[in-house]
């Protein structure tokens, strides 16, 4: 897994590439914890290049989003597709997160 971040106005765009599983999920949480510690609260997670997610990955997404929501922040997801979308749909995670077809549309929704 690889994580790239960029800042768009007040929103952090976090691009996750590869696999989010029992091995890599702790790295995902650590990255977000560091961003939260830096004061970031608005996030768009770009999952276009995420090829696989397991329950450990879902747990990391949920735990992180809960932490951010506790700080009055928001995590939106963009570009979910393929087998990752199937895991999301089956798990009911599609209704937990605001989801968008592109980072641009997520940014528009978040920043207005």
């Amino acid at each position: 897994m690889n994580i790239e971040t960029s800042k768009e106005s007040t929103t952090m765009v976090v691009k996750v590439t590869g696999r989010l599983d029992a091995v890599t999920s702790s790295e995902y949480e650590q990255k977000f914890n560091a961003l939260i510690a830096d004061g970031e609260t608005m996030f768009i997670v770009d999952l276009e290049n995420l090829v696989y997610i397991s329950s450990a990955g879902l747990r990391a997404l949920l735990a992180t989003a809960k932490r951010i929501k506790g700080k009055k922040g928001l995590v939106s997801l963009a570009n979910i597709g393929g087998s990752v979308k199937e895991v999301f749909d089956i798990s009911g995670f599609g209704s937990i997160f605001p989801m968008y077809n592109s980072v641009a549309s997520a940014l528009t929704a978040v920043t207005g």
């Binding site: 397991s54 329950s55 809960k66 929501k69 089956i90 798990s91 209704s95 937990i96």
Partner: peptide, 17 residues
């Protein structure tokens, strides 16, 4: 799987999947 983000437990998905 119908709960919202704050109600949803972190975990319990493995067997379901």
């Amino acid at each position: 799987t119908s709960q919202d983000i704050l109600e949803r437990k972190v975990g319990g998905l493995g067997c379901y999947l």
